[in-house]
Every structure is written in structure tokens, then in C-alpha cells.
Design a protein around this nucleic acid. Structure first.
Lengths: 107, 107
DNA sequence: TCGGTAGTTCCGAAATTCCGAACTATGGGA
DNA sequence: TCCCATAGTTCGGAATTTCGGAACTACCGA
């Protein structure tokens, strides 16, 4: 398997970040990844709230987050490890991610 | 014409805001409204960058912004005046709008 | 009442999202 | 080595959303 595409920090666009996080499921996934530092993808987030997310949907959610520049994914053996790129993104767009995540936390 | 629907501040949802502003055209419209304080709708924003936006698309963009709680629209005679709800929204989600707008400004 | 400007609604085409089923990749035995 | 189980991706069709032109409505001034 060839390595997954990750945008360079300078190619990360605000619209992609907002689009990625405008889906509550993706926002919850991202919050979990950012909160725990690292999450092995699908099994660890197979449900959000009381809603079960199908594998194929999860896979595309991870792809959206990755291509938006929000997470970094690498395969470790049979599972995928996901790390947030919070620190990087915060350097490019100061305060953006924390404002978004605390807006969600407020609801 | 019956008055337009505007969500109460406590019904404003982060996902709606992010979705509304994840479209660069809407973000540009909102920036113009927030910047000038008030914009008479379509004529004043009939183009974003070098791209002309059809009236019907503009109309639905304004609707999305309004229903997300980002702007307040009222008819004055033949034209529609749009005000940003920045101050209100900032009270509910501190720092969110300014972080988003400065992220766009950075690109 | 007519005419012009501002904006909305309607509706079909295009694009996007959703998710089940089938498939691929990897590692651990036997 | 071969097979199995687990983790995740891809495919494809249905459902939803977005786009934009044409027709329509609302309001004002003359």
C-alpha cells in the first residue's frame, strides 16, 4: 500500500477545514483524536453518540479529515493510527481549531 | 411579505455556522457584510473575486447565512439590508468568527 | 397604473453524500 | 507456505444537496 496523501501545511485551506468540521460526526471523530492524541481508526470510533457509523462512512470521514490537513494517518500493522495536526494547523490559523472545538463543546 | 425567519441566538448551532462559512463565496459575502456593517444584498455583492454570482444563487447564499444565525435581513423598500450578528454570535461562541475570518484573510 | 429595480421561487441538471457489499492489505498461526 | 481473521478501502447505486436560468412577486416612483 502506497503512503496516504497529506497536504503540506501551506496548502491547508480554511474552507476545507470548515467543511470537514461542519459535519458533527467528523467533528466528534476529530475531537476524539485530538483529545487522546492518537486513535486507531474505525474500531475506536465506530459510534458517535448513540449512532453507529458504518465502516465505509467512517473511512470516507477519515479521508476528508486527512485531506483537509486536520489529521495524519499511518498504518501500523493491520490498523491505522491517526494523529491530529492541531499544533501545525494552529501555527497557520491561530485559534481556529480551539474556537471551533469549544463552540461544539458549548452545545 | 411576511418577515424572514431568524434563529434565536440559543438555537444557533456550530455546524450550521461552519457549513455556511465553508463556502468561500458565502465567506466573502459575510466578510463584506461584517466589514461594512450593512450591505444591501445582491447588487452590492454580485461578484466575488472575478466570478459573477447569479441572483438566484446569491439569494440562497443569503438564506443559508441567515438561517445559520450569521446575519439579520430586513427589507427596506425595494432592497434588502443585511447586518451581521457577529456580536451576538461572539457572545455565544467566543472567538469563533474572528478566528474563521482571520483564517480566510491569511490565504 | 405602468415600469423598473430587487429579490424569491421553481425546477431540472450536476455534484455530493451515504452506506451495503465486495474487495484488499497485513499479521498470526498451523 | 497457506489460510484465517481483522482493519480498512473501493465500488456503485440511491438519496440528498447545490447550482443557476427562467419566471414570478414585491415595492417604489412617476
Amino acid at each position: 500500500m502506497r503512503p496516504l496523501f497529506h497536504p503540506a501545511l501551506e496548502d491547508v485551506q480554511p474552507e476545507a477545514i470548515l467543511h470537514a468540521l461542519s459535519d458533527p460526526v467528523r467533528a466528534a471523530i476529530f475531537a476524539r483524536i485530538a483529545g487522546t492524541g492518537c486513535v486507531d481508526a474505525c474500531r475506536a470510533v465506530s459510534a458517535v453518540g448513540d449512532r453507529v457509523i458504518p465502516k465505509s462512512s467512517l473511512s470516507s470521514h477519515f479521508k476528508v479529515l486527512r485531506e483537509a490537513g486536520l489529521i495524519r494517518c499511518e498504518r501500523h500493522g493491520v490498523e491505522m493510527r491517526n494523529h491530529s495536526r492541531c499544533t501545525e494547523v494552529d501555527a497557520r490559523f491561530p485559534g481556529l481549531l480551539s474556537a471551533i472545538m469549544s463552540a461544539y463543546a458549548r452545545v
